[in-house]
Design a protein around this nucleic acid. Structure first.
Lengths: 120, 120
DNA sequence: CGAACATACAACTACTTGGTTGTACGTTGT
DNA sequence: ACAACGTACAACCAAGTAGTTGTATGTTCG
């Protein structure tokens, strides 16, 4: 409902909607990497990778810390979990629908012959 | 790893990256709705909403069934779960990192803060 | 049949995105 | 000091996106 929470969801899902960014995220979740170390892994310019890292950072999926002339990027698992909880909320909405269907069925058929209708 | 599984992830996260589409998804997970019923809920043209529904359908997040002149859209919870499992995979990657750190600590190795940077 | 409804799709516009190159600036090592 | 490195950012471009309006097609109902 909150305006900014929808903004955040937009940013998170958008950040995850690019395969290069998902791959970068995997790497930085596995351990710290400098931006140039990451860039060396992809067949695109350094600047392109740096922009992907910036998108992930703006979405809160990774953080950077300076070490000398390098920026070490590290994945934030809490942000990943927050996305998972958004999906949990969607699943809860679906479960509410199923519960309502089950209620109707049990009212019509108190003997409960049918289990889990064709629900998905 | 599969090429088309990345395509699918692209489509799923992209579909979820728009707040109108997330809202539509919530409604159709809660129960069947015709496209026009959905469209009436938003301050945009019918065609715009119809395109959002098409994006969700292409991503596999909803299915439509014809009933007379209406198309009834219904959310597919399995697709939502498949997204959740992608996030689980990311969290597993992160957990592997933590396990490796724990291993280093338990080996009482005070050197080398860098953790196996890559698979090469 | 003909009117109203429900949907689909094409064409167009404004904006965003993912990529490029070039430049600027701080840090490191010799 | 200075060359090489690591990063950030601006300007640009092609492609995609989210919205619009208009049109076509099928369905229901009086």
């Amino acid at each position: 409902m909150n305006e900014s929470s929808e903004d955040r969801a937009d940013a998170l899902f958008h950040a995850l909607s690019d395969r290069t960014r998902r791959d970068i995220l995997r790497r930085v979740l596995a351990g710290e990497h400098s931006v140039s170390t990451l860039a060396a892994r992809y067949d695109m310019s350094f600047a392109a990778v740096q922009k992907h890292v910036a998108v992930l950072e703006r979405a809160g999926l990774l953080t950077k810390r300076r070490q000398g002339r390098e920026q070490l990027a590290s994945g934030d698992v809490a942000a990943v979990r927050s996305v998972a909880s958004m999906l949990d909320e969607l699943e809860a909405v679906w479960r509410g629908r199923i519960d309502r269907i089950d209620l109707l069925l049990s009212q019509d058929n108190p003997d409960d012959p049918e289990i889990t209708p064709k629900g998905s």
